[in-house]
Nucleic acid binder design. Structure first.
Length: 441
RNA sequence: GUGGCUAUGGUGUAAUGGUAACACUAGGGGUUGUGGUCCCCUCAUCUCGGGUUCGAUUCCCGAUAGCCACCCCA
């Protein structure tokens, strides 16, 4: 009789009822990647603290209406990129596609207008957008962002930009450029829109198909088109900064002066308009200026002033500015550079145990070591001393503490120097002290 | 939403119209309680569904996913 192959017996069925993969556009962040995330988030939080911001967490789910009104009914984000559904109770809700609308809601709902102004808040968390995933772009992605409510002074615009810049510096992202523009307010923007539309209508036969649609839908976006012929038309289009009202003009000028004072390297980009309706006056993005393989630049984060948002949502007249960056994009950027951060998983000492009695002693000793702040590894599931020392080696442990059957009975422990291989027997009650003493050298 | 490319073990790759090779990783072992080198063993029926064929992982179609571009954005 032919020998049965083991694999034929224990083979698992290939077909599974549950698809074992993440939902499209969503991904796991594995332990191997976590150290970068922690690095980014820790530095960002620290700076926000230093700048007087306080953390806020808000729900991932909000009533869809909030985003429709806040972000804007006709924006792409709301029109076709929201994860929306109805609850069993019939409420129409959406996974948040961005963070600002929710924070504005929280500001109103919690009566923050009666707090000491300005109110400075920061936030981190998942955002969701139903888009086709591609490089640096997922359906679930993470924002780190901060907002300042209740202060309309241009110095605040500059401070937000400064903090954004500073965060990237601390994180270690190199070669950045600040792109900045002003898109006016509800007073002057309509006039400009008309001017722009008039201009473009004269050149309508030189535009691409998409731009002809934009002409009626969202004229500001005409300036953004990447088609060659449209870019030519855009290059001589009226620029919004020439048509700002007096207040907006002064605000922008002052903001730039503050940036000069802070010696921030910004670039005026009159085509920068951004795709969310709530922005007024200052808008800016931070671009990674060293290009990827194709020579493109990508936006790591963006923000701006939104003086009308609180009002639109039914709060009072509260000016505000904010900024957010995409954590995934920064992670990618750091990984593509040669930033090296210590990511090795190490333990100072490693516990080796043989037999059940020893295992119990080891458990106890583990606890004592942890309490005295010694980093200690173990592999209680493994039986042989050999395999355990192998793991100790993988953790680059300085010492192995070996408890065998004999030691368990004697109340002793063998301490093995992993480098020299020299071993000594010491009594259990002296172990912690001895380990600490040796680690100090 | 549109278009292009791709889809082999935990990972990275190879080959082939007749059921898969290599490297790494992981697990186990190389006599009884000792690691880092070395040696041995083990781990894929080739994403899913249909078609062509005597026979497909290999050819065709579809689905799904990934990547890339457009759109938009972080």
């Amino acid at each position: 009789m032919p020998r049965l192959k083991k694999q034929n017996i224990i083979k698992r069925p290939r077909k599974r009822a549950i698809p074992l993969q993440t939902v499209k556009g969503m991904r796991d962040i594995l332990p191997t990647e976590q150290f970068i995330w922690e690095h980014i988030l820790n530095k960002s939080k620290k700076l926000c603290d230093d700048f007087g911001f306080r953390k806020i967490d808000i729900p991932i789910l909000e009533y869809s209406e909030l985003f429709k009104r806040g972000v804007g009914q006709t924006t792409d984000i709301v029109e076709k990129e929201m994860f929306s559904f109805e609850t069993r109770g019939g409420d129409k809700v959406s996974l948040r596609p961005e963070g600002t609308a929710g924070i504005a809601r929280a500001y109103i709902q919690n009566g923050m207008s009666r707090w000491t102004q300005p109110v400075k808040l920061y936030q981190e968390g998942s955002m969701f957008r139903y888009e086709n995933p591609q490089e640096g772009r997922y359906r679930e992605f993470h924002h780190f962002g901060f907002e300042i409510f209740g202060d309309g002074c241009p110095a605040i615009d500059a401070q937000v930009i400064y903090l954004a810049w500073k965060i990237f510096q601390k994180i270690g992202v190199k070669n950045l450029a600040i792109q900045i523009n002003s898109i006016g307010c509800s007073e002057c923007r309509p006039n400009y829109k008309n001017l722009l539309t008039d201009y473009y209508e004269m050149k309508i036969n030189k535009l691409c198909v998409d731009c002809r649609k934009r002409l009626t839908k969202n004229p500001l976006r005409l300036l953004d088109c990447k088609e060659d012929k449209c870019m030519q038309v855009a290059s001589s289009a009226p620029q919004i900064i020439d048509h700002l009202c007096g207040d907006c003009h002064d605000h922008f000028k002052n903001t730039l002066e503050f940036l000069d004072e802070l010696e921030l390297p910004y670039v005026l980009n009159s085509n920068l308009v951004r795709g969310l309706d709530y922005y007024t006056r200052t808008v800016f993005e931070i671009w990674s200026s060293d290009s990827d393989s194709l020579g493109r630049q990508s936006s790591l984060g963006g923000g701006g002033r939104y003086d009308d948002l609180i009002g639109v949502l039914g709060g009072g007249d509260v000016p505000a500015v904010g900024f957010a960056f995409g954590v995934e994009r920064v992670v990618k950027k750091l990984l593509s550079g040669k930033i090296s951060l210590d990511k090795k998983n190490t333990k100072q000492v490693f516990l080796v145990q043989l037999g059940d009695t020893a295992k119990k002693k080891a458990l106890k000793l583990f606890d004592k070591l942890i309490d005295s702040k010694v980093s200690v590894g173990e592999s209680l599931g493994r039986g042989s001393i050999k395999s355990q020392l192998k793991i100790a080696n993988r953790f680059s442990s300085k010492f192995a503490l070996i408890i065998g059957q004999k030691e368990a009975l004697d109340g002793t422990v063998i301490i093995r120097d992993m480098e020299s291989g020299i071993q000594e027997v010491i009594t259990m009650d002296k172990v912690v002290g001895e380990v600490k003493r040796r680690l100090k050298k």
